[in-house]
Design a binder for these strands. Structure first.
Lengths: 148, 148
DNA sequence: CTAACCCCTAAAGTATACTTCAGGGTCAAG
DNA sequence: CTTGACCCTGAAGTATACTTTAGGGGTTAG
């Protein structure tokens, strides 16, 4: 049985992060000892690493909570996990597409910029001031946050 | 002179957003009339559109505040603006690279997943449980947020 | 016994870009 | 004179993933 500091060290996270994960239902404590200290089994360390790896490939903590439920559910199928992965892949592709489009617009503008000259005749600022209609291919580049 | 509702309509934002932009120093009011209502010149509408266009190509409000300073500074050069654009392009390329890497890892894992089978023998969950060392190309996929 | 280091809780702060809320004036039409 | 649309302020809420703060107890080496 490990105390929180040991789990944190082995898992590569801070103790505050561990307590946070506990509040969020991502990691459970095995119990408490007499003085109220958390005791963890060493599966806790594996769990932390799972969480960190999942974050590294793009899952949010919310996603990860779902993955952990699937992992713990003997009735769940591997397909369910793959479904989550494929959904995440689609999200990433969408983000990549947005970024690529923004990058290409900016790159075009930067290319149109002379080496010198006052900001009063800057093609980038001009472009930002005026409509960008020739670019319209449908969707805006803005993320799907709730707009005005 | 326009009141806030009119500027919001023409600029395609909400009045709350306008007041927020004002607090953040992105838009100035021309003045107030007797009852305390804000009055705007129609350059305000152009300013709002500038802000929205800049957001669409990936600038944050902080970036945009800088761009607006450059725009207002007669001593600034067009190069300065292009510098900001190029920096933003580099940021986007970095984000794209991270996303591409995550996507490719996930895609490989998803491809390794059988059509059926219990989660107990899921290659994706297995991969998340164990180290992902064969992938190491240096940098982690995690964004540069302050880690544990 | 005391310093150093570990543990505990609850709450607030961070960053971004807004939105929502609470509470209250102003204005034009009918 | 009331109704509805508009305006005002200041503060808090949203989402994400933590970190930091404030305040206090436990444990171990010297």
């Amino acid at each position: 049985m490990l105390n929180i500091g040991e789990v944190a060290r082995r898992g590569g996270v801070s103790v505050e992060t561990l307590r946070y994960y506990e509040r969020e239902g991502l990691v459970e404590v095995a119990g408490r000892n007499a003085n109220g200290y958390r005791r963890y089994g060493d599966d806790a360390v594996r769990q932390i690493r799972f969480i960190k790896h999942a974050q590294e490939v793009g899952f949010t903590l919310k996603d990860i909570k779902e993955l952990l439920s699937l992992k713990a559910d003997p009735g769940a199928s591997c397909c369910d996990v793959r479904g989550r992965a494929e959904e995440k892949i689609r999200e990433m592709e969408a983000k990549i597409a947005v970024l690529e489009r923004m990058r290409s617009i900016l790159a075009d503008w930067a290319a149109a910029c002379p080496d010198t000259g006052p900001v009063s005749r800057c093609p980038i600022l001009d472009a930002l001031e005026n409509e960008m209609d020739e670019r319209r291919g449908g969707m805006s580049c803005l993320p799907p946050g709730r707009g005005a």
